[in-house]
Design a protein around this nucleic acid. Structure first.
Lengths: 217, 217, 217, 217
DNA sequence: CATGAATGAGCTTTCATTCAT
DNA sequence: AATGAATGAAAGCTCATTCAT
């Protein structure tokens, strides 16, 4: 039951500079600065002057590569989204023994990935409501894709008799919602568990919820 | 294993007016306005002028009851926190048949509660990082209390043989993390499931994860 | 043939301060500054900082009394318009011997008036195209009124046999167009004629154009 | 009484490129763009970027042909001035029956001419005060020439007994001031008169003011 | 001859906050 | 207790202009 088949377009940011390579490079510089600053003080408290200073690009010149501040937030999201997607996209990986293994690998992958960008991830989940309508839709669509990916995996697991759940789509939603658990809730237990333990416990929690038999874990 | 024994102090907001009743009343007015405005446009885009207008309290006069804008964010959190706590605090409820029933009732309670303040809840989870260090610590401590509450419940369930989990504290953390699932992720499925269904499916997911036997559900 | 009977509304400038007297006083201060600065360097080259400095009103505070820079241009026009109207409005004057005398008095009145605000008058005729649509309409309507006033005078003159022209409305337009002749073209002859001479010669020119007989002049 | 014998120098715009033909060609391109843009939004609201885009000349490259933005305004004036002059310069025309006919033809000529460049004409009269001192002097000198031309015509008419005025120079000034009557005041009657009517009525007005006898009109 | 990269200065506007009454 | 007047600082954005190739 894979729902939603919308086309997930990417919004093009209007730049005055045509040279695509350059644009990409500058955008990268800007995003790097944004990552740091947004993580430190959030989107609203980060001024374009801050970004200019941090990125080393002259304030007015930044406007050759974006057309408004909001574009930077979107750029930031694009960048983080891509990273997140790369963590969960294991299409090129070796075949898995079974869906349980695959899910475990998936969870570990995204947890490790998201841990590597902890600050940014927090920012991401925290500032997304300030995206413009357009950008927000695109970002959410991206998230939707992850949910679909998980659902496919779950359905396969169900078909093969490993998972037992009432509703694969809702399960997928919940699991995808678990992804930023570590950066968002870490503060409450980070000093009591190692990262390894957290992954393990969370994975166990999820597998249980999918009614995976003990012997398949 | 109930960890953390910190004293959860409440930060006193420095006011120029001493009459406690009055302070409380004005704070209430301010928070009411804040709730509406923060939900609409977020903390940063809400100006004190907006709050003054919405609350009907003269702009300068507001400063008799707070000392900086951040105080209002904190006030807002205090208010929402209390609401959230009230949803989960069932100490005065009738005895439950068993921990499973109790957990189910708890989940339903908080889901319904949080649904009733959807806008504010979203704001809460989204703007909390902009609290000042002090305020943030207090708010997080409040959250911690909920986790503890859940953990107690889980441990009771384990003792009575209903739940089977490796680590009750982590389980409690995850479950508490699930609380704002509905307002935060609703956008992806709100049009496909009724609220009832969502509660049911989520509950089922959680009970599974706690290895509740089918006959006890 | 008095055409155009539109209602000439005045646009209210949106201020945050309610006290009408104060608003009027501050507006006056602002306009005084604007008069000077606009005359010196025109509307666009005058910054709000300039106006703040010149008027002695704090930059941000100015915005309590206007809502955008354009408002100041409009305020300036209102002010000058009123002055101009006062020059041409001789309704309270003693009865004139005949329309010729009345016209002569009118011309002298506006010439003297406009001369007294020379700098501003120039600015007025020069920057009006930068008014917003709304404001422009109002200002032009004001001008229209002057034309009507003149037309009435001419028609009376025609009826009484003093003037002889094909089209009173067009004549009125031309005469009204002559009003800023002195400030706009003065540069070409100001050093060769006294103000008196200019008034006299222009008046003569106009009376001729209306075919006033030599004995009536 | 032809006064003013100043030498009407043309200000040379300092260009980095020496090739005169090229300079002229580029200047032409620039002016074409300026005409359009100034008419649309005025001098100050037109940026060099706009001009670059409209003219198709690279922004930095424009600076090889001018040295500051003001130069473009001056270029614009030169261009329009030349056009205006061409409208009034009928030296190569067939001989006229008499000065009345000549004046009538002159008026019609400039009215038609100015009508053909209405937008630019309005801009011209509206933005001229923003010219730099130097440029302004030159432009005004150019206008002075027109006045002289008219004065010569009037004096001839006086000598031949067609016109009767006190002061030919002032009359010439007034008539020259009438030239932009149509573009500047058109808004007040353009929908009530045809262009033909306006020319006719204005001409009549002027002839009257010069005391031309009815039989000579 | 022609272009893209880059900059400094400045503009309008908004805001949190304080002062005086 | 309550209000209106007033301010300094900064934000987002645009522009004329220059540099380097």
């Amino acid at each position: 039951m894979v729902r939603k088949g919308k086309s997930y377009d990417t919004k093009k940011i209007i730049t005055q500079v045509k040279n695509t390579d350059l644009v990409e490079q500058k955008h990268h510089q800007i995003v790097q600065a944004a990552c740091k600053l947004f993580s430190e003080k959030g989107y609203h408290k980060t001024s374009l002057r801050d970004i200019s200073r941090e990125s080393g690009i002259n304030l007015s010149y930044i406007y050759k590569y974006i057309s408004k501040k909001d574009d930077i937030l979107y750029l930031f999201y694009q960048y983080i989204s891509k990273k997140l997607t790369s963590f969960s996209d294991k299409s090129d990986d070796p075949e898995f023994e079974n869906p349980v293994e695959e899910l475990k690998s998936f969870i570990r992958g995204v947890f490790e990935g998201i841990r590597s960008i902890k600050g940014e991830a927090l920012t991401m989940y925290t500032e997304c409501r300030h995206l413009e309508k357009d950008s927000l839709r695109i970002v959410l669509a991206e998230e939707s894709k992850t949910v679909q990916l998980i659902e496919v995996l779950i359905r396969r697991g169900i078909d093969q008799g490993y998972f037992h759940v009432q509703d694969s789509f809702m399960a997928a939603n919940i699991i995808s919602y678990m992804i930023p658990f570590y950066p968002l809730r870490g503060w409450n237990f980070r000093d009591q568990y190692s990262f390894e333990q957290i992954v393990e416990l969370t994975t166990d929690f999820i597998l249980n919820s999918l009614n995976v038999k003990e012997e398949h874990k």
